[in-house]
Design a protein around this nucleic acid. Structure first.
Length: 318
DNA sequence: AATTAGTACAACCGCACGGAG
DNA sequence: TCTCCGTGCGGTTGTACTAAT
């Protein structure tokens, strides 16, 4: 029937990754850059499916991923985006560059869904996010109702609505833009994080040396010198959040992805942003905030429709 | 102190899409 | 133009951990 499995099931290891495997994967990617996943198991000797390798990288090993608790802003954003976009986690993730779609999806399924339900049961609504949950899954964009192109277009058409809703979301908490610029640290619930997850963090940390060869540096260019591994140097260093954006929003991320991640020519701009991100304060929120609050710009719909400007040109924000 | 239930996270699976040949 | 391959996405499952009894 369908396609053959991506890898033969025999001899393919499954289950949790070990630190050794992570190291193998990381060092391989360090050398060759992400991509060509099919070749990864072969070249690394990992007894893993290529998909598994990709997933491991994009969800856990890739530098720039924030782990731990979601803060209020993130939470609200997710709720609203979920209402607008439905379960398009990749698209949603593109608004939260430090989070992976998997993370967001899990968080939604384990926390937010219940939370919203509870709020609804209680007759309350958190001022808009209510509809979110309700409409949520079925809501915003009818899922398989239309082909992707169609819903993208539709979403783009609705971008204004989206902005409005997001603005509401963000303004719910008159909170400190500071919180946006420098989201609360994940407060890694001490015991909660599985022992290995944290070691994955450590492995990711290993990458920092690679990301920023020198020191605090601006990373990308610096490492860029290592010519041969162009893929690597082009993709990795920016990782801190380009990875997130590109990985999750890469393409079918959809309009949201288009709007947010939109790496025009991708990497160069994003790598700058990465610089900012890696520097400490993730630019994502402030970018988003700027975009949302910048009503005057008015290059909303049209821009999106035509050449996808808004978030597309990150340089605008710096 | 032991057992059970609930929760959170990590990983896998299948499908769909886009690009290359 | 068609087919195949590689990749990404969303849904689901499995497992570890924590809290409650």
């Amino acid at each position: 029937m369908g396609r053959p499995p991506c890898c033969d099931k025999v001899g393919v290891k499954k289950g949790p990754w070990t630190p050794e495997e992570d190291l193998m994967l990381v060092s391989y990617i360090q050398e060759h850059g992400p991509g060509n996943w099919r070749a990864v198991p072969t070249n690394t000797g990992l007894m893993r499916c290529s998909k598994s390798c990709r997933l491991r990288w994009t969800n856990y090993l890739r530098p720039g991923i924030k782990r731990g608790n979601f803060n209020d802003q993130e939470e609200k954003l997710i709720v609203h985006l979920q209402a607008l976009l439905g379960n398009r986690w990749a698209a949603i993730a593109s608004y939260l560059p430090e989070r992976t779609d998997n993370d967001i999806k899990n968080y939604w399924n384990t926390h937010l869904k219940k939370k919203l339900k509870k709020m609804q049961d209680a007759g309350g609504n958190d001022g808009g996010s209510e509809g979110a949950g309700a409409g949520g899954v079925g809501g915003g964009v009818p899922k398989a109702a239309a082909p992707k192109g169609q819903w993208e277009r539709r979403l783009q058409t609705d971008i204004h609505t989206a902005r409005q809703a997001l603005r509401d979301a963000l303004s719910l908490e008159p909170s400190q833009p500071a919180a946006l610029a420098a989201p609360a640290l994940p407060t890694p619930s001490p015991g909660s994080v599985t022992t290995y997850a944290s070691s994955a963090d450590n492995i990711a940390r290993l990458l920092e040396g690679w990301m920023r060869p020198g020191s605090s540096s601006k990373g990308p260019e610096a490492s860029g010198s290592t010519s041969s591994t162009t893929a690597t140097t082009r993709q990795q260093p920016q990782c801190s959040w380009d990875g997130a954006a590109s990985a999750s929003a890469s393409h079918s991320g959809g309009a949201a992805g288009a709007a947010a991640a939109h790496t025009p020519e991708g990497s160069t701009e994003t790598s700058k942003m990465a610089g900012a991100g890696a520097g400490g304060a993730p630019p994502a929120f402030s970018m988003l905030e700027n975009w949302l609050l910048d009503d005057g710009m008015g290059h909303g719909e049209a821009g999106l429709m035509d050449d996808v400007v808004p978030l597309g040109d990150p340089s605008e924000f710096f």
